[in-house]
Design a protein around this nucleic acid. Structure first.
Lengths: 163, 163
DNA sequence: TTTTTATCGTTGCGATCGCAACTAAAGTCA
DNA sequence: TGACTTTAGTTGCGATCGCAACGATAAAAA
């Protein structure tokens, strides 16, 4: 009657969570080294480095962070002098957030270590395996896309490139 | 001079985090439905269902949760009547945590939905693809195993089976 | 124009987390 | 035995998060 014993280590949500947490934590060691950056702040910096002046909502839509989390991350980054906020030109509600020189150079200082971690993770698989791996990630995303109870995917993750 | 623009959506730590967060959130919809269970509480319940009476440290070592998190999860579960804590028999420091009938039946009520989500994720890939996918996950874990700055892997995730 | 509705960003609140400090119990060694 | 070290579990503290509510601005409707 009892179905097979439920084992966490074979449970896909658990497996993804464990690896992801471990990788994220390892990465955070790097950007905490340079400055006490959080995951949210790290994502905001990276996004700004590519997208110039954007609004809170833009960031929220692009890097999988809740709106208040983005807002608070931006405030901390501004206090630290890494970003600047300017009032939106045509729309008074929007704010234009952009990197300062200090923010850009700080990010540049962190990027090599981040790239190195990424490279190390990729180095253990062949190009074909990596492609297949990402393909599976994508298909699992698609499962959630079809699930009304799942949170919709952010725009950047849907398109190949954002903006 | 400038290396390729850094794009989050091609960054492995980010990709893993986004899918993992989305899957975890989708799963939490299920076990919040039955009772306001957190991820930690869910993992504790699942682990207990297989491992009987175990200590806090046992759980901590097995399901990738910090010790205080386990302790608090157990307290909440005890207050809710899902688990019971009994003093260790030979060692006065240890506590033997085990499921109550109510806890077992509650877990049994949640498991089908959890299995369904897991099954849906697996259904979009063939057995061979799934094996290759898990193999890549494992190799990425191994990268962190060799990294002194990464947190060691928990015991259960290292062995094929825990305990 | 005036009213209503929608959107943007921020803030308050409750809950949770991680880390470190702490208490209690066991083990170790003189 | 008694002092010291180690381990198990809990708790305090600071920080963070997610959600909902809020004020402010803009757009839409009347």
């Amino acid at each position: 009657m009892t179905s097979t014993a439920f084992h966490l280590s074979t449970f896909m949500p658990y497996r993804l969570a464990v690896l992801s947490e471990r990788v994220s934590r390892r990465l955070s060691v790097e950007y905490e080294k340079t400055f006490g950056l959080s995951v949210a702040e790290w994502r905001v910096l990276v996004h700004l480095s590519r997208c110039g002046a954007v609004s809170v909502r833009e960031i929220h839509n692009c890097v999988n962070l809740e709106k208040p989390r983005v807002s608070r991350a931006v405030s901390r980054l501004r206090d630290a002098g890494f970003v600047q906020k300017m009032p939106g030109e045509d729309d008074g509600r929007l704010v234009a957030i952009s990197l300062t020189d200090k923010g850009a150079s700080t990010l540049a200082a962190i990027l090599p270590a981040a790239r190195a971690i990424d490279a190390r993770l990729r180095a253990v698989v062949s190009a074909a395996e990596l492609k297949a791996f990402c393909n599976v990630l994508e298909r699992m995303h698609a499962v959630l896309d079809d699930d009304p109870d799942a949170k919709p995917r952010s725009r950047m993750d849907l398109e190949g490139l954002d903006i």
